[in-house]
């Protein structure tokens, strides 16, 4: 699982229950098992201050007393590169154990809470998860991997909108000059039962009069189209002045073996860089 800079390996039966820009709640059989939130810290970081704030929040909202606890040896070994402080709390039916982490390399602070019903079972899972936790990469890219999609996006783009609805996933990223939108629709067998990919693209993405091109992408049927303003000086100036981006490129491809349709749309006010478009598409895959 990877989301907005954080990556970790979670047990297969732990599913995403709630998702925010810098927040994940994982569930097992519809019950919360892991909560994780993170943020980039400007200036000095204090574990004590954050623990105090967490304790106040828990006390006020949930009536639970959060107290600092010694870091279990297994966790200490798993969290070698981080500065970590553990805490625990106990409710009527569920107890919790967590850790506040700070990475001095990327100044990222992460709060992780495990909700326990069976403490012995949870101990092993939590150790494995913490050992796999990463909060930065060396290649200036961010991996986004939730549900059945995985995308690799340059870190100059930040997430502005996410939408996970049955049948339609949408992730929108912005940088200073461009906007990237990733789509995933399913099940394709139903969506394409009475129309082809071009008609589907027209209906879903409201294509203007531009005619889409059909192509084959690694054995998958695909359609692609781009919108470019006419190459006159006035059109160029007008394109720079108006709020809506003038250059637009969209590609949709049908993954038959996964029964879904993937799509990428890139918009910008300046001409788009073709290798960049191909890299985004190549990094966007179904799990």
């Amino acid at each position: 699982m990877a989301w907005n800079g954080i990556r970790f390996m979670a047990p297969v039966n732990w599913q995403v229950g709630t998702i925010g820009t810098r927040y994940l709640l994982l569930e097992e059989e519809s019950r919360p098992v892991l909560e994780i939130k993170w943020a980039r810290i400007k200036g000095a970081f204090s574990h004590k201050a954050h623990l105090h704030r967490l304790a106040a929040l828990h006390g006020r909202n949930l009536g639970k007393a959060v107290r600092e606890s010694p870091l279990p040896p297994g966790w200490k070994k798993a969290l070698g590169g981080y500065s970590a402080k553990a805490f625990s709390w106990r409710g009527k039916t569920v107890s919790g154990k967590g850790v506040i982490l700070y990475c001095p390399t990327c100044q990222n602070a992460t709060l992780i809470q495990f909700y326990h019903r069976d403490a012995s079972k949870a101990e092993n899972a939590s150790e494995r998860l913490l050992a796999s936790l990463r909060d930065h990469r060396q290649d200036n890219k961010v991996v986004w991997s939730v549900f059945d999609i995985r995308a690799t996006i340059p870190n100059t783009f930040h997430l502005v909108r996410q939408r996970f609805e049955p049948g339609k996933f949408e992730l929108e990223f912005m940088s200073k000059a461009q906007k990237v939108t990733l789509y995933r629709w399913g099940p394709a067998s139903i969506l394409l039962c009475d129309r082809d990919l071009v008609e589907f693209a027209r209906a879903m993405l409201h294509i203007s009069p531009v005619e889409p091109r059909s192509l084959s992408l690694a054995g998958s049927k695909a359609v692609e189209w781009n919108v470019t303003p006419p190459p006159s000086r006035w059109a160029h100036l007008w394109g720079r002045m108006k709020a809506k981006p003038s250059f637009q490129w969209t590609r949709l491809w049908h993954l038959e073996e996964k029964n879904c349709i993937f799509g990428v749309r890139i918009e910008g006010k300046r001409p788009l860089d073709t290798p960049f478009l191909d890299r985004i598409c190549a990094g966007y895959e179904s799990l």
Binding site: Q15, G17, F147, P166, G186, P187
Partner: peptide
Amino acid sequence: RYQLHPREA
């Protein structure tokens, strides 16, 4: 049947 993600289904 439709290869949906369990949560989506």
